[in-house]
């Protein structure tokens, strides 16, 4: 059995706690035998009872306390049970954790990681299914990291906890937790970059017909589509960054995007004012892409419904990605 996205994260947490006594984990309902709402912290409290702290339902204080611990030499990992609850954390991240190193002139650092699952697909409805990462992009001093199914999620988490002076908002996607980290034989994957790498996946060695830029949860649908599209002789190159808070490196644009006419930028956030619009904006600044057909696909401008049929209508799905690709090529 291939390791799943969830197991990769679990194993990484066990490993960093074993390797580094500065790592503390805190959050709601994370103690064994429950082990967290999505089980990412399972087993930790049994092995490290002193370093795993079960908190009350106090998201602001969880991140506030973790910020204080980080200021005093620890490397805390705070779990926020649902990404939607990040709204309750916003003040701590925006006005304290991400400000301190910058406004105190690097006399302090805040090596804090806030982990949280985003996204729908599970029928949790409007306040437990959102993708709120757009609210946390564009904040100086705050990195937003999100592994796709083609990344090594545990390695990214380890980098965030051990090798970054933080703070890092680490976004996990609920729909990916149960997915194995396996790649279909017909898909070729290249990983580029060191700390927070970007993944380039292709369903052929042919020149791509469409380049798709995305991240996180949609990587599941894209990976499913790739072999199917290859059979249809539609060649795609999927580019999945893991660091969302920085726009694409110009070398990536030159080496992997320039020269292709059709570019699709997609995520499951509500439309506008987010990663998709920022990515399009940055691509528009390249002379080599001046004539490119750049399209976007995002979730609908509404809440995420609980009923499956309605949720499928609101969110980006594999079917909608496929239709969009066909439309771009027609």
């Amino acid at each position: 059995m291939k390791t799943t996205y969830l197991e990769s994260l679990q194993q990484a947490l066990h490993q960093v706690m074993a390797d580094d006594p500065r790592v503390l984990v805190l959050g709601e309902d994370i103690l064994d035998p429950y082990g967290g709402a999505f089980k990412v912290t399972k087993g930790l409290s049994t092995h490290y009872p002193q370093r795993v702290l079960a908190t009350p339902i106090s998201e602001s204080a969880i991140v506030g306390l973790a910020t204080g611990m980080a200021l005093r030499g620890f490397r805390p990992v705070a779990e926020i049970m649902f990404g939607d609850f990040m709204a309750l954390v916003a003040d701590q991240l925006l006005n304290s954790a991400s400000k301190f190193a910058l406004m105190y002139q690097d006399k302090v650092s805040v090596p804090l990681v806030v982990r949280t699952p985003m996204g729908g697909g599970r029928g949790y409805g409007p306040t437990h299914s959102q993708c709120l990462e757009k609210m946390f992009l564009g904040i100086p001093g705050l990195k937003v990291v999100c592994p796709s199914i083609l990344h090594n999620p545990g390695q990214l988490l380890r980098q965030s906890i051990i090798n970054d002076d933080g703070p890092v908002l680490f976004i996990e996607y609920k729909n990916l937790y149960s997915q194995p980290l396996s790649v279909p034989k017909t898909v070729r994957v290249t990983t580029i970059g060191e700390q927070f790498p970007l993944v380039v996946a292709q369903n052929s060695d042919e020149k791509p017909d469409v380049i798709i830029l995305s991240y996180g949860g949609l990587s599941e649908s894209l990976l499913q589509l790739m072999p199917y599209l290859a059979d249809e002789e539609i060649y795609v190159r999927v580019i999945l960054p893991s660091l969302l808070s920085t726009t694409l490196d110009s070398a990536i644009v030159t080496d992997y995007i320039a020269g292709c006419h059709n570019i699709l930028v997609t995520d499951n956030n509500t439309p506008g004012y987010g990663w998709v619009s920022e990515t399009v904006c940055s691509l528009r600044q390249y002379a080599s892409l001046r004539n490119a057909n750049i399209c976007t696909l995002t979730a609908a401008d509404t809440v995420v419904p609980a009923a499956q049929r309605l949720e499928d209508e609101a969110l980006v799905t594999a079917a909608k990605l496929e239709q969009t690709i066909y439309r771009m090529l027609s």
Binding site: G64, G68, M69, L71, Q92
Partner: peptide
């Protein structure tokens, strides 16, 4: 208000 939680975190760290 935010600094109160941060201070509690610093106290626990020490």
């Amino acid at each position: 208000g935010a600094g109160v939680a941060i201070t509690v975190g610093m106290a626990l760290a020490e």
